[in-house]
Amino acid sequence: MNLKLHVWRQPSAKDTGRIESYEARDVSPDMSFLEMLDVVNEELIVAGKRPIAFDHDCREGICGSCGMMINGVAHGPQKATAACQLHMRTFKDGDEIVIEPWRARAFPIIKDLVVDRSAFDRIIQRGGYVSVNTGGAPDGNDILIGKSSADHAMDAAACIGCGACVAACPNASSSLFTGAKITHLGKLPQGQPERDRRVIGMVEQMDIEGFGNCSWFGECQEACPKEISIDVIKQMNRDYVAASARASSNE
């Protein structure tokens, strides 16, 4: 099939960008979306033009590197699917596809479709861990964790940090990302001692980075390639209120 692509091109953070159009010819339905872009890039290089820059790595939906708005939808039209796992059979001959980078003040564009998501790392730095040094851990079975707690924690821990939640949110909120980590550690006994400190720190950092608030649009949950539930945001709010109440009673 043949497609027409309208792609955001921006040489660097300093330059202004614009949409440019390209033809993608002889696209096989079995190609992944990124393979389709590979083929377009090969043609661009041969034609002496600059290839389209986009982040990608594992191409099996787990590293969280890739991510772009495809026809106005984060990671494209297929639910629970990262762009690298989206296949061209989702499109049909003659389709026009608009491809844009994630847009958020906290995710500045580096080039074309590549954005800087280091804000996520800084949110984790504010408490998205258990403060345990290597060595001296008790036996793994000394900490009993019921199956449902472990399963709940795993549901939230599945986050790949791709940023689709921010991209899809009309407020550019990172609540799903932050809430997922708070829920993962909050469901486990290992996460309890630092639970208050974690939620206060991570929420504060999320605000410092310039993400918007959660208005419960539900777009993040829909965009999440790992189908993380907005229940994690509820958990974050609850923990935040409890932690704030405890903090002010200790003041």
Binding site: H6, W8, I19, M69, N71, G72, V73, V98, E100, R103, A104, R105, A106, A168, P170, N171, A172, S173, G210, F211, G212, N213, S215, W216, F217, G218, E219, Q221, E222, A223
Partner: peptide
Amino acid sequence: SLTQQSHAARPDGYTKRVPQASTLASRFM
């Protein structure tokens, strides 16, 4: 103030964005 903050959180909008899950009500708040 939250609205101001949300607008600041995405200074450059998308050329194309298609809501997937949000209700009309939520977008009209």
